[in-house]
Simulated scan of single mutants.
Amino acid sequence: MFYEYALEPSVLSNWERVRFFLDAFGPWKGRFLANYPRRWRRMVYEGLHCGDREKKRIEERLASLDERVFSPRAGAPYDGGKSWLENAKEEHSRISFRAIVAEGGCGEHVLDAAVVDEQNELWCVHSGGLLPREAATFVAMVTLLLRASTRIVLIDPHFRADQDDKTRPLVAFCRALAGERASLEVHVSDANRSYSKCMQDAARVLPRILPGGSKVLLRCRREKRGGPRLHNRYILTDVGGVQFGDGIEVGDTGHEDRLSILDEPSHARLWEQYLGASSFDEAGTPREFVGADSS
Rank of each mutant, 00 (worst) to 15 (best):
H92Q: 04
F173Y: 12
V186R: 01
Y36R: 00
A203L: 08
P265R: 03
S189Y: 09
A99S: 00
D66N: 11
R73D: 07
E121P: 04
E185Y: 00
D112C: 07
K55L: 12
K89W: 04
Y36I: 01
H267L: 10
L33Y: 00
F70K: 00
F20I: 00
N232M: 14
W28A: 15
S183K: 13
A24E: 09
R221Y: 06
I209K: 00
F173E: 05
W84L: 02
C198N: 12
R73G: 05
G80I: 12
E264Y: 14
G105E: 07
L184Q: 04
R53F: 14
L275S: 15
F173R: 04
E134P: 13
F138R: 02
P228T: 09
L144F: 10
R42D: 15
S13A: 13
D281C: 05
G80F: 10
E46M: 12
S279P: 07
A24R: 10
Q163T: 05
D112Y: 06
P27M: 07
W15L: 15
E180P: 07
L146K: 03
R181F: 13
R151F: 09
I155G: 03
V290W: 07
L170I: 11
Q163K: 06
L170T: 09
G75L: 08
V153K: 13
D246I: 14
K89F: 06
I248N: 08
S83T: 15
